[in-house]
Design a protein around this nucleic acid. Structure first.
Lengths: 248, 248
DNA sequence: GCTCAAGAGTGAGCACCGCTCTTGATTCTT
DNA sequence: AAGAATCAAGAGCGGTGCTCACTCTTGAGC
């Protein structure tokens, strides 16, 4: 059993440095052209070596992407954690807002990294604005109409999730992942929804295909509010959306 | 001014048929291997022609993807519309549920098409389960902790979105897209949040990287409920989440 | 009916890609 | 000093999108 962190030999040090440089250049390319265009040959060119040499350090293109993804996850987690920790722990609203804003900021600053993590499909393709958004907003329009009907019938308050659904999620709490969580099933459910809503809001801003959004930042702030409303009681009485609805 | 839908000549008919076949084969490949692996050469091979011949019908690979996307949008809109229309128009909850379930069903049946529309980034890469999900769930864990803190302080009810945010969204209503919408800014805001939450719930189920989810369907049902609660008043008194929270 | 331009399909070729394998040089270990 | 491990290079395979010159066919206008 050797002492593992011996003074590294020349070889090992060189290797570590090359490995780091590969990741650095890869990240550069990623930031500029996106993951779809990430090419091992191009990276090798930038490093002044031949493409086959890269395979001493990287198993495959997918392997390289994996490392970049893990890296991005860490970067995101760190950024959000830092923003969160900078807030007075008793200021719950402030903490929620800090998390949301940090996530958004991080995503907007590195859309490709965000896409690497939370996106999924086609290379770096961007949908043209003509017929696609028209068809894409159709369901939204349908939803708006439904809402309008609801408004006509004065049925605009909060519906409680069905007991069945809440019960089903209770089973999730048995998972080891939630071992230390002591909140109940209902609050877990609301937390997941808040997380989904937050992530969805950021995603839609990063890959805007939501329709006409004149003020994306304001819209995000609103989504952040709504998402926060799923898990936080207001510190002081408010005249915002939920209150207005409940007094109607 | 020629009558445009003259009896098509043999040539035009042949062309239309070839065009349709290209799309058909492309859709097949897309369903099997995903958008990243979609290759014009492979499509040409399947069609028994040489790859360069495809360029008589398609400007480029991206052009083909565009057509597939538009197609997918239409297919999705049609499926959802159909499910929605099959419900009694006065049953608002039923309509909301129908929309949500139809969207989910469509997405789960054609994950690649869904990804084509609502996804974004890296080819068809799938993140390994080791360190990535650990880092990926870190923010969620942070959120859960915040919620726990909130529970400790008995602050678990709905926060109203800030008046500023609601006001900002009011500006959106000036956009031509919302010309026929007569609902107010606050309800529009809630509608958008509901839409975001619905889409996020489907996305997370299709590209599951959410952590341990023993019963995805139940979780979706819950998200659907929460999202619906943003826009619908319950038809009858309920003992679900929101109610429980408000009586606490 | 003939002509002739437009359309459809071919095949070669360019520049790129991921990835493998052999070969020779360098370094580390024993 | 000898042997083992590592590294970089180069050639090469099969694949990609896309272009271009080239035939052959077809159909519309005179």
């Amino acid at each position: 059993m050797a002492i593992t962190d011996q003074p590294l030999g020349k070889r090992a040090r060189q290797r570590a440095q090359t490995e780091a440089e590969i990741l650095r250049v890869a990240r550069e390319h990623l930031a500029i052209e996106g993951a779809a265009a990430l090419s091992l040959r191009a990276i090798a060119r930038d490093l002044g070596m031949v493409s086959s040499g890269l395979y001493r350090y990287v198993d495959s293109r997918d392997d390289l992407l994996t490392r970049l993804i893990v890296d991005s996850y860490r970067s995101l987690a760190a950024a959000v954690q830092a923003a969160h920790d900078a807030v007075d722990p008793t200021d719950l609203d402030g903490r929620w807002v800090a998390i949301g804003l940090a996530l958004r900021r991080w995503a907007l600053d590195r859309p490709h990294d965000f896409a690497l993590i939370y996106g999924s499909p086609v290379p770096d393709y961007e949908a043209p604005d003509e017929s696609t958004v028209e068809a894409g907003t159709q369901v939204l329009a349908l939803l708006l109409r439904l809402v309008q009907d609801a408004a006509d019938q004065h049925r605009l308050v909060l519906l409680a999730p069905s007991p069945e659904a809440a019960r089903a999620v209770g089973a999730m709490l048995d998972d080891p992942f939630f071992a230390e969580v002591t909140i109940g099933a209902t609050m877990l459910a609301r937390s997941l929804s808040a997380w989904t809503l937050l992530l969805g809001a950021v995603t839609s801003e990063v890959f805007l295909q939501l329709g006409p959004v004149p003020d994306a930042a304001a819209l995000f702030g609103l989504q952040l509010d709504v998402a926060g409303s799923l898990i936080l009681l207001p510190a002081q009485p408010s005249t915002g959306l939920s209150t207005a609805v409940f007094t109607a």
